[in-house]
Design a protein around this nucleic acid. Structure first.
Lengths: 130, 130
DNA sequence: CTCAAAGTTTACGTTTGCGTAAAGGTAAGC
DNA sequence: GCTTACCTTTACGCAAACGTAAACTTTGAG
């Protein structure tokens, strides 16, 4: 019924997310994903795919693989008091830095707009003055 | 008349931006800042301070020092056609990635809010049920 | 059966961004 | 002139996140 693929090879995912297979294997070495095996080959399912998305999002935001692992691991648990505390702590810590990043980005995007306008303005003025 | 300091030592800036002097010297090694010298000691002025801010903002956004240098260098020039083109290209490239980051951050901050609420909700339910 | 394409493990190499001594020069107060 | 706090250069060290090469194995097509 569904159009969605439910199984992927390593190069399927590599292509889709525009990363190398080496990277994906590396995330596995670091225990961030653990795909099933069919014989010796890795088989990724939808859950694995989502995890990979999470990893890449985390990376784009400047988290280290270790931090991403910690968050992913804690995220799945929910129940244990200590781990909940820890997750909340990580969230609060990160929230400030993320809010700072947000400011930075807005600032920079605006700078870019201004600058681009300035640059493109005197970029083609020749058909008026020549 | 003005209250603004116009001269800083390396540790002034280190303290202000909460980084190490080593980092600042490293940025100099990589040609990102070039403070004056009084004898052998580095003297930073307001321009240098602004540059340092730029560097740190760039870093928070995931730029490499090399990229930051390229941008800063191009930023100052304006005039040369090729460099203007290059800067515009860099801007466009980065804009997309920054917009993606912006999405990521908003997504994650929202996730955090939801999660935190969920976690703090059943964090102290004992005084009702016990 | 054979060959190519893709997958696998192992392991050393590389880049980035500083940390961290080591070993000493300098400026200011007393 | 001595101490103390801060500055300097030089240089080796290191963790993170893969790149890359070597040397197979597996699978699918023909």
């Amino acid at each position: 019924m569904s159009d969605e693929k439910t199984e992927y090879t390593i190069s399927d995912l590599a292509k889709e997310f525009e990363i190398t297979s080496r990277s994906i294997r590396h995330y596995e070495d670091e225990k961030l994903i653990t795909p099933l095996r069919r014989g010796v080959h890795r088989i990724y399912n939808t859950r694995d795919r989502v995890r990979l998305q999470l990893i890449l999002r985390g990376k784009r935001l400047g988290f280290s693989l270790a931090e991403i692992k910690e968050i992913i691991d804690l995220y799945g648990v929910e129940g244990e008091q200590k781990q909940t505390e820890r997750l909340l702590e990580l969230i609060r810590l990160r929230r400030d830095s993320l809010k700072q990043q947000l400011k930075d980005i807005k600032y920079l995007l605006n700078e870019f707009d201004v600058l681009e306008e300035k640059l493109t303005a005197n970029h083609q003025p020749n058909n008026l003055t020549s």
